[in-house]
Each structure stands twice: as C-alpha cells, then as structure tokens.
Design a binder for these strands. Structure first.
Lengths: 347, 347
DNA sequence: CTGTTAGCGCATTCAG
DNA sequence: CTGAATGCGCTAACAG
C-alpha cells in the first residue's frame, strides 16, 4: 500500500480512503490512485484491516457437517444470506460431539469471527455456548433449542408430529412406533413429545417399548427399527424422527421383507428431493431449511449490531408432504385441527 | 497480552513464547504465565498472529454449495482433512457461475487464506484460476480438470461411462441415450466421450439427437429427458451424467408413465445413500468423494510447502454399484475389459 | 481536500 | 534463560 501511495504521489491515508470510499477525494487524484493500484497489482489485505477494525466480516458456523443433507441446505442458505450482507463463512464441524463443539467454538472465537451460528450438540452443560457468551461472542442457535436466554431459531416439532400420529391413528393404526433421534437434542424430545401427544389425542395408550433410539443416523436407526419390528407384537405404523433415520428404517423394512404401507405404514420428519421417487412415496414433514438459515443470519447480525437486545426465539412451521407411505390412499386428509398445525403442500 | 505479561511479572515476549512453545521458558515462570493467562481470560488473537506470520492457517474452498449432495460429501472430507492439519475452511459459493467464481476467489485471496481449493466453473477463460495464480495463491482444482499446469484431482470418467454403455449394449439395447451435464465442464465432456466410446466399442452408431443437455441439475434434466423419450424413435436405455440429473430423469419417466428398467433401462454417474431404496434400485457409478477431498487437501498443503513443485494431476477410480435399473437382472456382469476399468462393489 | 502519526495484537531479532 | 524494540498492513483521528 505504501508502494501504491508512492507511485501515485499521495499518502497512504489517501489510498486507504479511495479504497474504502470513506472520505471525499478529488476525482483527479483518485484516478491517480486507482491506476497506481492496478499497476502495482495491489490487493487489499483484509487481515490487517480486520486487526485494526476489530471485525472480520466473517461469521462462524458450527454444525455437524456430516451426512445429513438437511444441514447442507442449511449451510447453503446461511452462506447466501451472509454473503448478501458482505460476510463470509468460516466452517466448523462439531461432529455432533460436545468436545468437538467446544473446540470448534473456541477456534472460531480465536479467529475473531464477528458472530457464530451453532447447531448445539447434546452436551448437557452447553460448554461451547457458555464459552461463547463468556467471550461475549454474538451467538445464535439453529435447529435445536437450548434456552430462551439465547437467540435461537428452529422449527415446530410437537404439533406436526402429533398430527402425523393422529393421521395414522385415524386410518386405524392402534400400535404406532417411533424411531427417535439422538437423546439430548431438543428436536428429539419435542418430536417424541409430539408422538405422545398424538397418541393421547387419539385415545391410544403409549407403550415405551414402541419408542426406539435411532441416534439420528442411518445405521443405528436401521438396526433399531429391525429390532422393533421383530417384536412379538410389532407396531403397524412407524413415525421416524428425521431423514437419515428414514433411510435406515426403509432399509430395515427391506431387510425383513416387509412392505410399506401394506405391512407397516410410515410417516417421517424431514423431506428429501427424491421422497416421491422411492416406493412408496414418502409422507413427510418438510422443514423450511432455507428460511431457518436466513432467520439465523438475521438474528445474528442483529445481535452483532445490538449486543444487548433481548434474546429472541424464532420458530418456523414445517409443511406436510402428504404422499403414499402413510397408507391412507390419499383419500383421507388430516383432521382439521391437525391440518392447522401442519399446513400441507401438494407434492 | 500486555495485561497477562504485567500480571505475571514478565515481558510480552515471554508470554508469546510460552503460548507458542517457541523457546525454552523456566517451568516456574511458565506456570506464572499460564495462570495469569486464565485469570485474565486471555484469548490468543489469531488475526494479529496471522498479520505478522503472513499465514492464516485457513484454506479457501470455492464450490457450488447448492443442491448437490456429492459436494456436501466433498466439503466434509476436505474439512476434516484440513482440520487434521490445523487448518480451517473459509467457504465460498461459486453457484456454478464464472463471475461469482471470480469474485469468490478474489475475496478468498483478499482474506489471505493459505491456499484455495476450487471446483472450477465452466468459464472458458478461467479468470478466477488465472487470478489466483497471478496472486501466486496456492491452488488446487477438484472434480473438474482444466489443464495439467494446475494441481488437480478428479475421478475417471471416460472408461467408466464406456463400461456402462457396453453393459447396456450387451443386454441388447441398440438405441442408448445420454443426459449430459453442463457444457464446459471436463466431467461433462469426458462422460460424453465415454458414452461415444462405449457405443463405438459395441458397434453402435452414435446419434447426436440421443444426447440431451440436462445442465447438471434436476429440473432441466427432467424436461430434457421427457423431450428425449417423447421422440418418435426414443432410446430404450439412458445413461445419466450425474446424481441430480438422475432424479430429474426418474421424474421424467414417471411423468410419462414409463417404468425402469422395463420401458427404459437406466444407468448413471454418482451414487446416493438411497440408491437402493428407489424403484428400481439404481445402477450407478460411485465417486470416491472422501478420497477426492483428502487428496485435494494434501496436494494443496504440498503446494503451499513447495510452491515450485511440478503440478500434479490425480485421477481416482470410481466404483460400479451394480443394481437393478440397468435391467440385466443381475445375471450379466460387465465384460472383463469393462470390469477392469470399473471395479464393482456389491451394494 | 490531503498528509502525519499512532496504534491494532502479536512474533521475533538482538542484546543482555 | 529473558526483555526491549521493531514491524506486519492498515485505519482513523488530528492537523494542516
């Protein structure tokens, strides 16, 4: 930058100001600077700028990068919304592990990002989150809720899952099982709560043995589902807690030579782009991944701008993708109450 | 850091050295420093460090973040390998657009990442890549090849696709169509070349009208496939150039009330986790996404360490996932030559 | 309208 | 074994 200044016959201060447009510069000299800049091949050093400005224009993202396509959508949405506001993303992988999460958040803080979006792991102590707050690092939680003290954005879980269960019950199912996600995640608990609520509303007794742990991923869900269906008195319908576990559950059905929805009806949380290509076409609840990401970024930018604003929890509504795996033959819509909790969209 | 030094009764220089372990410090004073550090709640400022070290321990990644789950796997692999070497990822989205690509790379350079991994867009001038080289920014290309002057890592395309075509031909198909990807990408061209090669080897005449442009994404592939199958003399088998387009093609089949493999046989590039849950189970070619990512990072770190090393092109082999959509009934394996080009794995 | 100068927080010679 | 001093590249008062 000193070179540029010399070559243009001005001071570094002027160079800085033409670069940032931060104060008026006589058009003549500005031209001088401008072409001195590209004759020098000069490139603005964001690092140095960040040091003095105490702001990096970078947002940290701490999620479990792995496997789940839903998080891919989230990352994409977050990235584009961040970019729209001139921010870049620094990517951290929690691997759904509390220690990794803490280390990731630490690293992100060390790199002086302007704020962090994290999909919290099941850490009961929330060490990573506390650390961030401790550093007074702006923070917003996505997907999973932790406490209203944080800014957080998530999706409705209880009512939508209840609606699914009620639908299944109305078709005539009396033994409805659930493949639940990782213990310790709010999404898991809320979806199980929704399941219980649905049963209760349908006048069905809840049987704890019908709820199995699929650990939010494919393989465990596969074996758990297999075990569940191998019981002496297996459920005739299954509610599955997320997308990966749905793949696992379908594998399990195939392993056992069972067909959906004839042998076992299926309804699950999270949609796929190919959900209506599989046999049977999957009845699912689709998350508004894009909106979730956008909201998270907005919340974070607000928090950065006003560190003392009251924390806000945003909860978005998912959409019912009513297809064939529930086995109602398409003839039966949701009950009015359920439909209200869970707006439907034609596939 | 000055605070820490004061509180420990030493100089900043000593503090720096105990933090980085960069020279011997008497255990006694080191302890002093260490607990002064956490009594102060001091956090190492990576930004300032980067400024003086002229190195950020950050790698830039410029890909089309959108939609394609294959890139999700890639990002994951790259991230973990980078992390293994103490580097973090700065994420850039090219959106498969040349201008976005250039801007992304510019930004990444401005942020002084230590190197960049880019999945080049179809820009005929390779402006972004030239820019990076111009800045003498270490660079490696992933997925698509551009020129042996760059470090690049990709997957074999020609022979694997040829093998697919030969397989289809051997089952008896004489009119084999292809849904090709975005023009200008090496993967697209190589896969089309493989298609032609397979036809030639099978003694089939190539008909340009049987190759349609699916633009590497779902929707265009759907309409293109529909148009192709609506021809007076439609193909009886289809080779599809990537995963998203495969979803599109399957939608097209359903749109037309056609079934695979009975009405149209299907074989495609890129595997999915659910490829054997759809009807029919998809015969695909699976990319070694993880290895691609790992190799890319290794190449990049080598380039950073030795800026003048000769450029290297790494080409990995994909795996055949031989399932049902090709319609051979599982009875017919690949010809020996084809099998050699395309190792198979049981689903 | 523009130049001078003092840090931003750290790593690192060079002396002790 | 440790401290003092210099500079990384830039922005922002503060003078002109």
């Amino acid at each position: 930058m000193a070179d540029v200044a010399k070559l243009a016959g001005v001071s570094v201060s002027t160079v800085s100001h033409v670069i940032n447009g931060t104060r008026f510069v006589k058009p003549a000299t500005r031209e001088l600077v401008l072409d001195a800049i590209d004759r020098t091949g000069y490139t603005h050093n964001t690092i140095a700028r960040a040091l003095v400005m105490a702001s990096t224009n970078t947002l940290g993202l701490a999620v479990a990068v792995g496997g789940n396509p839903y998080f891919g959508d989230l990352v994409r949405a977050i990235h584009s919304e961040a970019a729209r506001h001139g921010h870049t993303l620094l990517l951290g992988d929690t691997r759904e592990d509390a220690d990794e999460e803490l280390q990731t958040v630490r690293d992100l803080c060390g790199r002086r990002v302007d704020g962090i979006i994290v999909a919290p792991t099941a850490d009961p102590d929330h060490r990573a989150l506390k650390y961030a707050l401790d550093q007074s690092m702006p923070l917003v939680l996505i997907d999973r809720l932790v406490s209203p003290d944080y800014d957080q954005v998530t999706v409705a879980n209880v009512e939508p899952v209840a609606a699914l269960v009620e639908h299944l019950a109305e078709i005539g199912h009396r033994r409805i099982g659930m493949v639940a996600g990782l213990d310790g995640l709010s999404t898991t608990h809320e979806r199980v709560d929704g399941y219980q609520l649905g049963l209760a509303r349908s006048g069905l007794r809840s049987d704890p043995r019908l709820v199995v742990d699929g650990r939010s991923t494919l393989a465990p869900a596969r074996t758990a589902t297999r075990r569940l269906l191998n019981r002496a008195d297996p459920p005739t319908a299954l509610v599955v807690g997320n997308n990966l576990m749905t793949i696992g559950a379908m594998h399990a059905l195939r392993d056992l030579g069972l067909r959906a929805p004839e042998d076992v009806a299926l309804a699950s949380y999270d949609d796929f782009e190919w959900a209506d290509l599989v046999a049977p076409r999957l009845t699912t609840v689709a998350q508004p991944a894009h909106d979730l990401g956008v909201q998270a970024v907005r919340l974070l930018l607000r928090r950065i701008a006003e560190p003392d604003a009251p924390p806000r929890t945003v909860r978005l509504k998912p959409t019912l993708m009513h297809r064939d795996s529930c086995g109602c033959g398409g003839k039966l819509p949701l009950t009015p109450a359920a439909a209200k909790a869970l707006p439907a969209s034609s596939p």
